[in-house]
């Protein structure tokens, strides 16, 4: 029997919601254990770093422009840190590198 698209979607969306919701509803107090607190404090840095590198190098289809975006992004983030400017700077670095290379 063919399953309706929206039934699939309901299952996927509910599963996803539960994954995101459970920790927020179950962990309602500040964790006192310093190791667990430290772990949770470090999580975003590690996750975002792992997700960014090396994926960013492959995002453009050419390592050279991906690397340009990464290097410029790191440099801008180091001196500035504004989300929009860093994102835009990375995009521009890719754009210009692609113009030169291709």
């Amino acid at each position: 029997m063919e399953i309706n698209f929206y039934v699939y979607l309901l299952v996927a969306a509910s599963t996803l919601y539960i994954i995101r919701m459970l920790p927020l509803t179950l962990i309602r107090r500040d964790i006192k254990n310093k190791y667990i607190r430290s772990f949770l404090y470090y999580v975003p840095f590690v996750t975002l770093a792992v997700m960014t590198f090396p994926a960013m190098l492959y995002a453009t289809g050419s390592i050279v422009s991906g690397l340009a975006g990464f290097v410029i992004g790191v440099a801008l983030a180091f001196f500035d840190g504004n989300l929009f400017r860093v994102a835009l700077g990375s995009c521009l670095a890719v754009f210009i590198t692609e113009l030169i290379v291709k």
Partner: peptide
């Protein structure tokens, strides 16, 4: 292609 790195750039800014 250029926009494809926007989110990564943002992660770096974070």
């Amino acid at each position: 292609t250029a926009l494809s790195v926007a989110l990564y750039g943002m992660f770096l800014a974070i």
